[in-house]
Write a protein that binds this DNA or RNA. Sequence first.
DNA 1: ACCACTACCTGAAGGC
DNA 2: TGCCTTCAGGTAGTGG
Length: 281
Amino acid sequence: MPELPEVETVRRGLAPVMMGQRIARAEVRREGLRWPFPPDMAARLTGATVTALGRRSKYILADLDTGETLLIHLGMSGRMLISGTSLGKFHHHHPAPEKHDHVVMDMDGGARITFNDARRFGAMDLFAIGSAHPLLARLGPEPLGNAFHEDYLVAALAGKNTPIKSALLDQRIVAGLGNIYVCEALFRAGIHPARKAGAISAARIAGLVPIIRAVLTDAIAAGGSSLRDYRQADGELGYFQHGFRVYGREGEPCPTEGCAGRVRRIVQAGRSSFYCPRCQR
DNA sequence: ACCACTACCTGAAGGC
DNA sequence: TGCCTTCAGGTAGTGG
């Protein structure tokens, strides 16, 4: 799934075909994904105009002129496919739905947006604009926002007995990081993923903050990472996966100049962690 | 309160 | 164009 950079890339890809546009027709092809879709979702989407398209953590949030926000989560394998943009407004030669195409939105401008999700860990919901949504209520700060700063992270991790790897995956501490970018950030910071979060010096934790920002910013600039079945909204491949220093590189030489270490993989909390045992302590 | 672990799904990849 | 096992980007929920 898509972590924050992939979701942001999808949001940017959707903006030209969604912003200010009316949903001429919405089709809901199954009852739900991870959770049931809200009642009458197709009817509540049909005719609505998108007035804002934002992102919070790994959630895409589309404000509608009906007073509701459409919440979208891509789960592990969710994709927002865009088709029909070059066919012209009055030529609706859309391809037939394929396997795992669950929600289809035909925009007034002629584009078709299809939510495809093989593993069905994704989600969609509708809620009143400005109201609290349970999935958003307990999220920590945005890692690229002002509320995520050195003092915050030091305080948030103080006394934590959990490994730093798990702590950074905890969306209540910082929202939007996933397995890949936590591995990459810890590598850049030289911190061993198994180190207890509360036992790391304040200076090293503070150093993580700009590193996390840089990893995410670099990945967004590269259009995210294409891994297995994830692609950008327009079907193009992001290329940040070529920038992974340790993720998925078990057994390869450490990329640090002059380091003789090899990338190791361990399992923490059921997830793979990749790191260099020489560089990361 | 914390923390580790499972479950939810399908599909790709690798070993045989 | 086999069969079986393992693994995958998330996260709510459970149970120690």
